[in-house]
Simulated scan of single mutants.
Amino acid sequence: MEITKRTLAEAWQRTAAGHALLHEVGLPPVALSDDELERWAERAEEEAEDGGLCLLLDEDGTVRGHHGPYREVFATRVLEQALYLIAEAAMRRRGGSLEEVADALERIDPVWGRRFRSGGLDDAGTVEACGRDPLEGLAWIAGSWREQDPYTTLAFFRAAPGLTVDAERLALLYGADPAQVAAGTRLKDLQAVDSGRAHWDRQWESCCFGQAGGWTFLLYHDTPPGSFADKEAYAALGIKESVWLTATSAKAIYTFDYMRDGGRVDDDWGVLELIWYERGRAPYLRGGELDFLNRAVRRAELDHPELTSTFELYFHALEESLGLRLPRRDFAEGEVRAAYWAGE
């Protein structure tokens, strides 16, 4: 059934009338054009109505949820999903912990409670708790990374299933010193012997590399001019997926880029900046290309309420959803492979 303004209003009226928790919750403003949306969104932001949620109804019946006039947070042509998302925004606005929001949605509809806990838009069935230390696989580095320690850029590369991206070849193509790569130089070696200068003064000229969790990682600050000169050699690495996490702490800019099969996965949002999301509100478009990460973020929030840093929650979600990891002990003991850039 194609959604119209009338069918949406009538469906919400029936839904709200059937549940005490929704009796006082009105339908968010519904706009039929971008100009109308902008007017409604600005007013909703000022009055904080339903957390600033406004709806834009396309001619084809697509309901687009917006927080503010320009940030689209969901798009659906399924009436039941639209009703759920409106209810979710309303329950979040009531306040309380995420478990309390989940419990409230569960009282309205058990499917909605499971859906909120899963972070998705469909009934996920039973959702298993994490049960692991959230600060092990990747999230252990989240706090220091915010201050560009140990490196500004955390880059990860993965080949087709059953294959691996050669870490040494990757580091060499980026510009690592061939002699140090061949010698198996470790981070502790750079820290101990440095041709007359302390490593802390040269760390901006270095990189660390290796493999963990099926990914090849390369950590660095600035790549030297001339990197990737051999494009054929880079293509021969067989990279199918790559993730870049970049921190510019002086400007408080933190970005996430995910490439898969030569294209950027971002729902046409452009540069994805971290981490501005509010707990309980999905950071990316619901039902979009990065919805798997929305689900992982929600699970991290619910499984680990002890984590107060959204960066740690987000990094744990990256570990859970994409399998990104870094060997904590190798970094702590200086055993991770390392090199300076050639010619530096």
Rank of each mutant, 00 (worst) to 15 (best):
E47K: 06
E47Y: 03
E49S: 10
G52R: 03
G52M: 06
L53D: 04
L55K: 11
L55Q: 11
L56N: 01
L57G: 01
L57A: 07
D58L: 15
D58T: 13
E59H: 14
D60R: 09
G61H: 02
T62Q: 08
T62H: 03
T62I: 14
V63R: 01
V63P: 01
V63M: 00
V63L: 12
R64A: 09
R64P: 06
H66N: 09
H67M: 02
P69Y: 03
P69V: 11
Y70R: 15
V73N: 00
F74S: 10
F74L: 14
F74R: 06
T76Y: 02
R77Q: 14
V78N: 10
V78P: 00
E80D: 11
Q81D: 08
A82G: 06
A82I: 14
L85I: 03
A89Y: 00
A90S: 08
M91D: 07
R92S: 01
R94V: 12
R94I: 06
G95Q: 13
L98E: 13
E99Y: 12
E99H: 15
E99T: 13
E100V: 03
E100G: 09
E100K: 13
A102Y: 01
A102P: 00
D103R: 13
A104W: 02
E106N: 08
R107G: 05
I108W: 00
D109R: 07
P110R: 03
P110S: 15
W112G: 05
W112K: 06
G113C: 08
G113T: 08
G113Y: 04
R115K: 09
F116D: 03
R117W: 05
R117D: 01
R117L: 13
S118I: 11
S118D: 15
G120A: 15
G120K: 00
L121C: 02
L121W: 04
D122K: 14
A124R: 10
A124T: 04
G125M: 10
E128V: 10
A129K: 13
G131C: 07
G131W: 10
P134S: 12
P134W: 09
P134D: 13
L135G: 13
L135W: 02
E136H: 12
L138F: 13
L138R: 01
A139S: 09
W140Y: 05
I141T: 06
S144F: 05
W145L: 10
R146H: 15
E147F: 08
E147K: 13
Y151K: 02
Y151I: 07
T152L: 15
T153V: 09
T153S: 11
F156M: 08
F156L: 14
F157H: 12
F157I: 07
F157E: 03
A159I: 02
A160L: 15
A160S: 06
A160P: 04
G162Q: 02
G162Y: 10
L163F: 07
A167N: 04
A167C: 15
A167V: 04
A167G: 03
E168L: 00
R169S: 11
R169T: 10
R169Q: 11
L170D: 00
L172I: 09
L172W: 05
L172C: 04
L173V: 14
Y174F: 11
